[in-house]
Nucleic acid binder design. Structure first.
Length: 429
RNA sequence: GGAGAGGUGGCCGAGUGGUCGAAGGCGUCAGUCUCGAAAAUUGAUAUACAUUGCAAAAUGUAUCAUGGGUUCGAAUCCCAUCCUCUCCGCCA
């Protein structure tokens, strides 16, 4: 959500930004908002005047009643009732206008950073930088689900019976490795100075409406029957929701948090072989980082944050690259965003393991998250980024540490979380 | 889940229908005093929106958990919701 004052003063900038996102069908919203805004301000002025009249008259009634002048008081009463009648219809107008403005403002995309590449959709996202050699070994890397099964680490069949498709049981060393990755990610971020947080895994509807777009809600949210509760799709939902309508202290900025949570997503439909297995599932676990900072610092944090994820995967011997989200693929609330992708030596291409975004002050405007500063209050900037999500991140680790003999070399940094084991030997063929 | 008590400004806390955006205190900031500090003392001290203004600012409106309602008028009365605390029950 952008600032309506900004829109009022720079309608052309807003329109240009919409065009860059290939959303021409939204251009009309800008002029509509300007028109409605004018009407709304007029109605507010009218309303304020009427309310002032009522207040003045009402207090007179009080005085008259005290001094016992009943008739005069009754006289004024009827006057106020007239004012109230006018006010009633005016308030309806005020309400209508502000609702209509809000509905449109919610659909107008945030102003992108000038560095965002122009492109229509995800096919035009731009590779920024590679980290680590994308090695293709001279032996075949099996499908990740098959690797996991060779360790007796997966039972999808039972999960199908108990919970349905896209659920799984992880077992033994694989389950342990999955948690080791998350535990390492937690400690990795704590080391970077972030505060570890375990948030609620369910949130109320009013928070859902604040932190998810309608499209996200439709494709993602599981609802708890008979309760006003929804399972979170990412800890960002409860982490950012935490600050809704709140003031943070200026001296606490930047607020740097790293949160763990399971994530629940509906996401129906088939996505082909490579997205079966454990790639696209209804339930996974994620270590996330979120930052609240001053607006002028947000780009600096954005760059720090995706670099943390790159560093994290490099410490696990997984080659990665960053893929910058082009204008057409960038979600409306975001200023800039990139995916961190891990190398798949099996597919010989990169696949998404994380996503880093800065929303500027758009999210905090929508949720009303402000800092109390010495020079007055201001909206903070919000950012979020994946440290690692597993099983997806685990796939990258398994494929890149797969040995010719079918064993998995455990990256050094994970060994302490695996009871000192250096290698996993398959127990099943 | 049951029963009770409560939710007021940065914090504590008064206020049960009429100049109440809200006493008093604490805190914070500025001044006086002091070589400086403490103490004392004086003053200031919410936010949002709108209007006027180059601006400083002025004026108006709204906000006493949230949303409705009653009333000429609501922090105050009524209803619903949320939250906190105490006791009981249940439970990792």
């Amino acid at each position: 959500m952008i600032d309506i004052k900004f829109l009022r003063e720079n309608p052309d900038v807003v329109k240009e930004n919409i065009k860059k996102k290939f959303q021409e069908d939204k251009l009309h919203l800008v002029d509509e908002v300007i028109e409605l805004d004018e009407k709304n301000r007029k109605a507010k002025l009218q309303g304020d005047t009427l309310r002032n009249e009522r207040k003045t008259l009402s207090s007179k009634i009080g005085e008259l009643m005290k001094s016992g002048k009943k008739e005069e008081a009754e006289n004024i009463k009827s006057k106020v009732q007239e004012v109230n009648k006018k006010l009633e219809s005016n308030e309806e107008l005020e309400h209508k206008y502000s609702e209509e403005i809000k509905a449109r403002m919610m659909r107008i995309p945030n102003i992108m950073d000038p560095s965002v590449p122009i492109g229509k959709d995800d096919t035009e996202n731009v590779e920024n930088e590679k980290f680590g050699e994308p090695i293709v070994p001279d032996y075949e890397i099996p499908y990740h689900a098959d690797i996991i099964e060779s360790f007796g680490g997966l039972d999808k069949e039972s999960a199908g019976r108990t919970s349905g498709t896209a659920f799984y049981y992880l077992l033994g060393d694989i389950a342990r490795l999955h948690e080791a990755v998350l535990a390492y990610a937690r400690d990795f971020m704590i080391e970077k100075g972030f505060t570890y947080c375990i948030p609620p895994f369910m949130i109320r509807r009013d928070i859902v409406d604040g932190v998810m777009s309608f499209e996200e809600y439709e494709s993602m949210a599981y609802k708890i029957e008979g309760e006003d509760l929804y399972l979170i799709g990412t800890s960002e939902h409860s982490m950012i929701g935490r600050f809704k309508g709140q003031f943070v202290k200026e001296e606490d900025l930047p607020i740097t948090l790293t949160s763990y949570s399971p994530c629940f997503r509906k996401e129906g439909g088939s996505h082909g072989l490579e997205e079966r297995g454990l790639y696209r599932v209804h339930q996974f676990e994620k270590q996330e980082m979120i930052v609240l900072c001053k607006y002028e610092d947000h780009m600096e944090w954005y760059n720090k944050m995706w670099n943390y994820t790159v560093e994290f995967f490099r410490s696990l011997d997984v080659p990665v690259r960053t893929l910058e989200c082009c204008s057409g693929d960038l979600a409306d609330l975001k200023v800039k965003s990139c995916d961190v992708e891990a190398w798949s030596p099996r597919q010989q291409k990169y696949f998404e393991v994380g996503s880093c975004s800065t929303l500027g002050d758009a999210q905090s405007r929508r949720l009303n998250i402000k800092a109390k500063g010495k020079e007055g209050n201001y909206l903070v900037a919000t950012l979020n980024n994946t440290v690692v999500a597993s099983p997806r991140g685990l796939i990258g680790i398994l494929e890149n540490n797969y040995q010719k003999d079918g064993s998995i070399k455990i990256p050094k940094v994970l060994q302490p979380y695996m009871g000192g084991k250096e290698v996993l030997i398959p127990n099943k063929k």
